[in-house]
Amino acid sequence: MDQFLQHIVNGTILGGTYALLGIGLTLIFGIMRVVNFTHGELYAFGAYMAYLLVQVLQVNFFLSLVLAAALGVALGALIEFVLLRRLRGADIDTVMLVMIGAGIALQNFWQLAFSGVAKSINHPFPNLPLVFGPVSVAPIRIFVIIVAIALLIGFYLLINRTRIGVAMRASFQDPDVAALMGVNIPLMRTLTFGLGSGLAAIAGALLGPIFVVTPTMGDLVALKAFAIVILGGLGNIVGATIGGFVLGIVEEFGAGYISSGYRDAMGFLLIIVVLAFKPQGLFAAKERIG
């Protein structure tokens, strides 16, 4: 039982960052109908920017996280502006190939710029875990989950309570009519891709100090983000949030009760089960929001 609680806590912490990755990807798919194969690279980008700022440039840790997220938004917006904007109306195969190519180019660029050697990022939190009864948690992990939840809530409010959020959802549901209402659809696409990318980058910047930073760190994470999006129903932001937490907890249980070697397999096993019984995703019947 003690272990059970510990797994739940660990899984929730991991799930928070998975949720950030998942809603970024599902937002981009929902609004732009683009399967973003650069999502994992944006995640690695966030981690590398945090490394660059904290370790090389000696910038304050917290400020570095904010800057890494902002740079992620900027890189995402740039990718949209340079590549995707030219591909409007192109068929989905072409767009996919271009995005896969962009992902390969970015990943190799990280390797060129930062070498293949794993980097670690120092953080200002004490390493001694905090103990709550049977559960012990490193302070940095508590920080990560608090930031993740704050971002998830903030993002939810942005999408549901602001003028720009309503316009985003409207553009997702009917771009032509949204344009008739005066929404600048190309700008909305750039913004969406930037925001989704920023969420991937902040997830990387948050997990960088917990794990290590490598050029290929985005590969597995991108696959998991796709799994979360499928789990939650394509384009469903609430679904992706829940999907992120479910995946985090399932992975923890798999690692804890079966074998840590099966950690990454657990998530995919879950996807297979969900797709076999509910191919539209767990939350597809609910209203899609984003």
């Binding site: 409207a170 549901q173 008739l180 209402m181 005066g182 929404v183 209203e287």
Partner: peptide, 26 residues
């Protein structure tokens, strides 16, 4: 010039109020 499109084309997953807000978007 406002355009009320063929087939209604309301935003199905926005609320009535949000649809009206979209009308006044600019």
């Amino acid at each position: 010039i406002a355009h009320c499109p063929e087939g209604r084309r309301v935003f199905p997953q926005l609320t009535v109020r949000e649809n009206l807000d979209m009308g006044a978007y600019l």
